[in-house]
Amino acid sequence: MEQRTELGRFLHSRRARLSPEAVGLIDYGGLRRVPGLRREELAQLAGVSVGYYTRLEQGQSPNASEAVLDALARVLQLDATERAHLHSLARRKPRTRRRTKPEQVRPSVQLMVDAFGGLPALVVGRYGDILTWNLTAHALLADHLAFDAPARAADRPNVARLVFLDPHARELYADWKQKSHDTVADLRLTVGKYPDDQNLEKLVGELSLRSKDFASLWAVHPVRSCERNTRDFQHPLVGPMTLTNELMSLPNDDGQRLSVFTAETGSPSEIALRLLADLAQDNAGGRREAKRPAARRKERARG
């Protein structure tokens, strides 16, 4: 993705959401060709020339100073996440248009995921691919998919694809609209961190073509950090649950995050989550038993 185009689109989206009154200007009426602040109004309030700001929004003025970016963030009333995203987009980065190797989970991280046991735990990669999950996370999020799908790079479930392209997700998330918004907002942050990444270009292009909901949300440029959230689930096996999800960056794995779901102690959601974990274990045992006759037949054939 062209980094400067992304910067211009982000600035334009934030201008569009502000009225003159919101920043202390007097609106004397009259028709406005576009909603929100005009370029000249934003430039005046931020203390830069209209020409400079126009070049910045059009991608023709690289290396904007920290002071200019902070002034624009102040006028545009950006929150901390949006401010960091603005700086990330404006910072010149070397163009590295190459496909990265398939992501892998370190053995110690895999052991940690397995150790959570009854709590759903998974590792999400840079592009939102599910790199591994334990039995409970699989049962919670996508038990209609093969449990070993994350082990195969070509078959890995992707969080954004599940949310926008899989009917199961629309039924699973009680507030699918909020979940879809947060998914796009998180992906926007990733695009800001890794410009010109072909895997991200492919993912965004695919979702834009296949989902009108995604395309509409992507166009308004939402940005939000999703390290912690509490959502209502409507699970087909155990019913309604309210779960809190913590996303923790893995410091030695660029872009990978550990995701763990918990329920309030003593709540009906905790009981439902325990039931789901038991069902996941039982189903896994059933799959192992089903494979044993085939293994025995192979052993007899070898003999």
Rank of each mutant, 00 (worst) to 15 (best):
L119W: 11
L119K: 14
A121M: 12
A121W: 09
A121Q: 10
L122Y: 04
V123H: 08
V123G: 10
V123C: 10
G125K: 00
R126Y: 02
R126A: 05
R126G: 00
D129N: 03
I130T: 08
I130N: 01
L131D: 01
W133L: 03
W133V: 06
W133C: 02
L135M: 06
T136V: 06
T136S: 07
A137E: 02
A139M: 15
A139S: 12
L140A: 04
L140E: 08
L141N: 10
L141F: 10
L141V: 10
L141W: 05
L141H: 09
A142T: 15
A142K: 05
A142D: 05
D143Q: 10
D143G: 07
D143A: 15
H144W: 15
H144C: 10
H144K: 06
H144E: 11
L145M: 09
A146L: 15
A146R: 15
A146G: 12
F147W: 07
D148A: 14
P150T: 10
P150A: 07
A153H: 10
A154Y: 03
D155W: 11
D155M: 11
D155V: 02
R156Y: 03
P157K: 03
P157C: 08
P157F: 06
N158M: 04
N158D: 02
V159Q: 09
A160T: 00
R161S: 11
L162N: 09
V163E: 03
V163D: 06
F164Q: 06
L165A: 02
L165S: 00
D166P: 03
D166E: 04
P167Q: 05
H168D: 08
H168E: 14
R170L: 15
E171Q: 14
E171G: 14
Y173M: 15
Y173I: 11
A174P: 01
A174C: 10
K177A: 13
K179D: 05
S180W: 06
H181Y: 12
H181K: 13
H181A: 10
D182F: 12
T183R: 10
V184C: 14
V184G: 12
A185Q: 07
D186Y: 14
D186K: 13
D186Q: 15
L187M: 04
R188S: 12
R188P: 08
L189K: 12
L189Q: 09
T190V: 14
T190H: 14
V191A: 12
V191C: 14
V191K: 09
G192V: 05
G192N: 06
Y194A: 12
P195T: 04
P195I: 05
D196W: 08
D197N: 13
D197S: 13
N199D: 15
L200G: 05
L200A: 05
L200R: 06
E201M: 12
E201H: 07
K202E: 15
K202S: 12
L203H: 00
L203I: 03
V204Y: 00
G205N: 02
G205A: 00
E206T: 07
L207Q: 01
S208N: 02
L209I: 05
L209W: 00
R210T: 04
R210H: 07
S211T: 01
S211I: 01
K212L: 09
K212S: 15
F214D: 06
A215C: 05
A215K: 14
S216M: 13
W218N: 00
W218M: 01
W218L: 02
